[in-house]
């Protein structure tokens, strides 16, 4: 017999979390982390209890976007996420710092299981998970281990991105995983292409965010981030 006991405690750890939303998409660099981090900020500013989990182990970036430094989880019957901007935040950066972390699939799975098994999130309205690109270990593990997860898909209008997003949507639909909808990011034309394209998959098109050239200079500064056109558009999409 060889049973991994951690798998049986994950449900208990997320018992008081009302909704778990995985921010995903087929490719890197399409704004998943921006949607996850600024979305979490918007929810938190609106009075919701929010947790934010960075599962992009090869390229964790939520700490950089939100300008988070010098915080560390507290140990008490597991790990208690430190709170910043009223958001409970967990990332591999606490243990890996800025150093590269060369992990293969089995190690990624093990690290995800460990974080889910030992993190004491407490009561939350939303746990936002920033997913790595694609349909690899992290995506499969979240689907396997977090039964209440809902996926929010970020895309751009690029055909290269849409091709991968289509595969992702097909997989999620096949596995009957709830999909909140699609957000079109970095929009540079008025084309309704993505909105029309989404209809093919019977998935809600939640809205669009124009390419915001000021977003980059606001990275690391929460007040500036919340004043960007990106944040205003996202707020509208989230109906706040």
């Amino acid at each position: 017999m060889n049973i991994d006991p951690r798998l049986n405690i994950i449900k208990e750890r997320l018992r008081d979390v009302r909704r778990v939303v995985a921010i995903s998409g087929g490719k890197g660099g399409i704004g998943k982390s921006s949607v996850a981090s600024i979305g979490a900020l918007i929810l938190s500013k609106s009075g919701y209890r929010v947790g934010l989990l960075d599962l992009d182990f090869w390229g964790p970036s939520l700490d950089t976007i939100l300008g988070i430094e010098n915080i560390f989880p507290r140990e008490e019957k597991g790990i208690i996420p430190p709170e910043i901007f009223a958001i409970k935040f967990i990332s591999i950066i606490y243990y890996a710092g800025e150093r590269p972390l060369p992990l293969r699939g089995a190690d990624i799975s093990n690290a995800i299981v460990e974080l889910l098994a030992i993190t004491q999130w407490g009561s939350l309205d939303f746990l936002i998970i920033d997913m790595p690109p694609g349909m690899g270990d992290a995506t499969l593990d979240i689907i396997r281990l977090v039964k209440k997860v809902e996926f929010l898909i970020v895309t751009t209008q690029s055909k290269v991105v849409l091709e991968t997003v289509e595969k992702m949507l097909r997989m999620l639909k096949d596995l009957k995983v709830p999909i909140l909808g699609i957000i079109e990011n970095m929009k540079i034309t008025n084309s309704p292409f993505v909105k029309d394209w989404a209809k093919k998959f019977d998935v809600s098109f939640l809205g669009e965010i124009n390419f915001d050239k000021n977003l980059e200079t606001s990275i690391g500064n929460v007040d500036k981030l919340l004043e960007t056109n990106f944040a205003h558009s996202l707020k509208k999409i989230m109906r706040f």
Partner: peptide
């Protein structure tokens, strides 16, 4: 007390197995 979280996982697994 990270050990507590893992011990809890062990007992919950035994309950589930039972």
């Amino acid at each position: 007390m990270h050990e507590w979280a893992l011990a809890q996982a062990v007992v919950y697994t035994a309950i589930e197995y039972q």
